[in-house]
Nucleic acid binder design. Structure first.
Lengths: 212, 212
DNA sequence: GCGTAACCCTACGCACGAGTAGGTATGCTC
DNA sequence: GAGCATACCTACTCGTGCGTAGGGTTACGC
């Protein structure tokens, strides 16, 4: 028996990527719990025991997805925003890279943003990645502030950075739901909200609550 | 046999609220799939069949949670932001009400924001609530713009509103994770980011990408 | 050409959790 | 105080899906 091998034998590295592709796709559509290992295996064109042999349990598989997509994202951003540029230029390049990533890997983004948040075992993993982002943004703001001879409390800085990151994620979400939208245009829109507001703060303009 | 009834018989309306409280709590901690009806029932101090008798299946129960918390939130916001006030005043009151809600019902917020998003059967429900919020914010911006004799494309308006809503949600998330933080102070911080940026836009100041 | 390791499968065990069957007790009405 | 609805329970069934046992086959080194 041998005429047609039906399906090819492939080296481990290739199969692992196929499995991760399938896993990201299924997790993004169904969520962690509702996704079944059978469906992932089928989508990868392989049988279930292979998935267990290569990537381990369901949790480990999900973590592997998180790592791959997270690393992709972080590298895209870090590679774009050289630390010696002026703040607005850095922000602009970072945003372009970020929205570029989301546009290119919508499923990956969905896993990171929509799925990993709610599920306890992974929320921490995700939060720490997010925290790194917030820190970068806060550092950027702080740097720009000091260059102007100003300073604000660390907690205010953190909260502002948090808001900016949140706004950006929200637009990424919008982008993921509008497949025809242009990532770069979205980045421009984000700059319009973020930078204009941030620039005001940098120049010492603040809003104060009314007296009543 | 009757000396001690051990646990009281309570009218349906009361038990339903206890069940919803328990459900919101458990769903917020575990997520929809990982939450078990047994745990919810136990937390509500009642047996499982009662939950089925009053609130129906697990999905129906989750929807009931979504509705209660969503209504609470929307009413808090709508009640605060009277439509005849100036834009910044409306925004400020709306934000105060919103962060007040999040501070008071952290679990409810977690269900709405972190859990309902990823799970397909409910994502639509949630998205429509969010869309209403975005519409309100966009309407506010548009109103303020027209008062200044300006106008921008509807899509730009929507995207800016989206970003503002996202930033606000992100801060709400931050608030939910910092139990000692003051909701009103958080609202002030949000105003500082949102309003200063938005005000710039309203006055026609925009940011343009560099030429390269 | 022969061992051995890598690749791949079909078919199951088993636990967990949604939903229910069938029954008991308490209070309310007349 | 008989009847009836409402509140409440213990103890099940049964599907679904994770993870694995126990194999088979192709390639590659020597």
């Amino acid at each position: 028996m041998s005429t047609a091998p039906a399906f090819k034998r492939l080296p481990r590295a290739v199969r692992e990527q196929q499995m991760l592709d399938a896993a990201v796709k299924v997790f993004s559509r169904r969520g962690f719990h509702a996704a079944s290992m059978d469906e992932i295996a089928e989508d990868a064109g392989i049988s279930k025991p292979m998935v267990y042999a290569y990537l381990g349990t369901k949790e480990e598989l999900f973590v592997a997805c998180l790592h791959r997509e997270g690393t992709r994202m972080m590298e895209a951003i870090a590679g774009a925003a050289a630390p010696d540029l002026p703040a607005d230029e850095r922000l602009w390049r970072g945003l372009k890279a970020f929205f570029g990533f989301v546009g290119a890997y919508r499923d990956g983004w969905a896993v990171l943003y929509r799925q990993a948040r709610g599920e306890q075992p992974f929320a921490g993993e995700l939060a720490s990645m997010r925290a790194r982002l917030v820190e970068v943004v806060a550092g950027m703001l702080d740097h720009a502030l000091r260059a102007e001879g100003r300073e604000i409390a660390a907690i205010d800085l953190e909260v502002v950075a948090y808001a900016l990151v949140g706004a950006t994620e929200s637009l990424a979400d919008w982008l993921a739901d509008h497949p025809d939208a242009d990532p770069e245009k979205t980045a421009t829109r984000m700059m319009n909200v973020a930078w204009l507001g941030a620039a005001q703060l940098l120049h010492g303009v603040t809003w104060r609550p009314p007296a009543d």
